[in-house]
Design a protein around this nucleic acid. Structure first.
Lengths: 152, 152
DNA sequence: CCGTTATTGCGAATAATTCGCAGTAGCGGG
DNA sequence: CCCGCTACTGCGAATTATTCGCAATAACGG
């Protein structure tokens, strides 16, 4: 029976790459977090376990993991990216323009859209990012209150 | 009866902003293109009509237009953004990881997803980006051929 | 036509990511 | 278990994309 670790090494071998301590570490840090981490945060957390790891390696590792489909990159409107390990099914994001809060959700309708596009265009869909934006319930209320205040 | 130009000025006035020649130009360049332009390209094209316009102004104008909802920003995996003037309905993108080709499409299912989220979370959805990726029909074929070649 | 002040152009500053290179370490084979 | 090949790493410098500070300019309401 395969241990998860062996399985991981096989994945790398199959991709013609080497499973290094740094790559394992980056992946572990990502999997240990439920949030989406940016490269800098990831770097800091990884450094706790390996003070010698470099930021460049973090970036290079993220690129590799992304290419292997183990990690997903999100660009939520800021200047930098956030990364997340791919487990469970795909899921999508709503980001509040007021407070920056991110709501994650899932829906089978995206798969349906992929299906449609596959049928219509003959494409092979490997990844899907759905990024809604607007205002969360809380911020909508805040805005209404401000409007009333301005009207005085 | 309003001319389109007057209408544009009103839009800016309503937002407490001024309609300058540069802003008009950036918008015109964007509307004249069917593709998504990045800031640099936009800058070059704008310079044809106004050699003095600066790249900083292009960026600032894009930020304003985006805030006003006249322009949409797309981050399709590269290091930089692409911009597109908002006309017609919303539409979504598939990008081929092989050749970089972008297929635009539309589907009412996204509106349905928005609806669901609105009902479930009480959020107000203002923008939706759906970004699928994978391989186009052509690149899939190319890949199969390469695989066979490697097998020899 | 005037005054206020948003906007611009310029070049410098930042932020995020990538690169070049010399040294290190995976891992397949003996 | 050791060797050799070469992918990978750390480092600091280089790029790329975008933003900022500031003095000069120009929109537009009155």
């Amino acid at each position: 029976m395969d241990t998860p670790r062996d399985h991981l090494r096989d994945l790398f071998r199959a991709a013609g790459r080497r499973l290094t301590a740094q790559r394992r570490l980056v992946l572990e840090v990502l999997e240990a977090s439920t949030e989406h981490l940016d490269a800098e945060t990831l770097y800091e957390r990884a450094r706790v376990h390996d003070p010698n790891i470099s930021l460049a390696t973090v970036y290079r590792t993220l690129a590799v993991l992304k290419e292997m489909g183990l990690v997903e990159e999100h660009r939520l409107g800021e200047g930098h990216s956030h990364y997340e390990s791919v487990r469970g099914g795909p899921h999508y994001h709503f980001i509040c323009q007021g407070c920056g809060r991110v709501i994650e959700f899932d829906t089978p309708l995206v798969a349906q859209i992929e299906q449609e596009l596959r049928d219509r265009e003959g494409v092979l869909v490997l990844g899907a990012h759905l990024h809604l934006s607007g205002y969360c319930a809380q911020c909508q209320q805040t805005m209404h209150q401000q409007e009333e205040a301005n009207r005085q």
